[in-house]
Amino acid sequence: MLTLEKIDVYYGAIHALEQVSLTVNQGEIVTMIGANGAGKSTTIRSVSALVRPRSGRIMFEGEDITRLAPHLVVQRGICQSPEGRRVFASMSVRENIEMGAYTRKKGSGIAEDVDRVLQLFPRLKERFTQSAGTLSGGEQQMLAIGRALMSRPRLLMLDEPSLGLAPFLVQQIFQIIRDINAQGVTVLLVEQNAFQALRVAARGYVLETGRVVLEDTAQNLLANDDVRKAYLGE
């Protein structure tokens, strides 16, 4: 479904991604784990066209999307819930959710999708008219995911959904990721919380200083000694 072919990304003189290749198949949950600064976010930011690779190709469903503008990438069916949530704090929860459906025509089932999102996140229903800035961290994360779902993505990319959340909320978020996937959305998940991420994912990539150093099924990665030491704190 999504293929990254040897992409290189630079920030000024810093070589942020080095020949990163990655594949996501239809219907999978794939996770990228690695330390801060390893290049996980940069990878999905280049898929969303927020940064431009200097070389390499990004293919989505057979189409080269390397040079598309960010909004066109969204129109192709790739949506990202960015790191740090980045909800529009001055707008209401409702406006935030509707903003997610920006690319869609009026009346094309948007109202139903809003209901669907509210079903997925009952907490948001309670806060529907409140401004997003007043939500707690967990609620904001739910809003960010819900907002991303509103564009009806075929591929949903989540950047650190567990960031700064209390443990019970983390559980909840990962359960929701499973639910979303069960509804037929392919998920690419970037996580610090390697353990949780590998538990929900089918396959995983381990990034280190801008390179893919390990690539395997989630089961095998969980069993891998190096991974356990480096990322699971053992």
């Binding site: 983390v170 919380n193 353990f195 949780q196 538990r199 704190g233 053992e234």
Partner: peptide
């Protein structure tokens, strides 16, 4: 362990 390393890391 609960907060930082993930709840189940403790048990698993």
């Amino acid at each position: 362990i609960a907060a930082y390393l993930g709840e189940e890391a403790a048990s698993g």
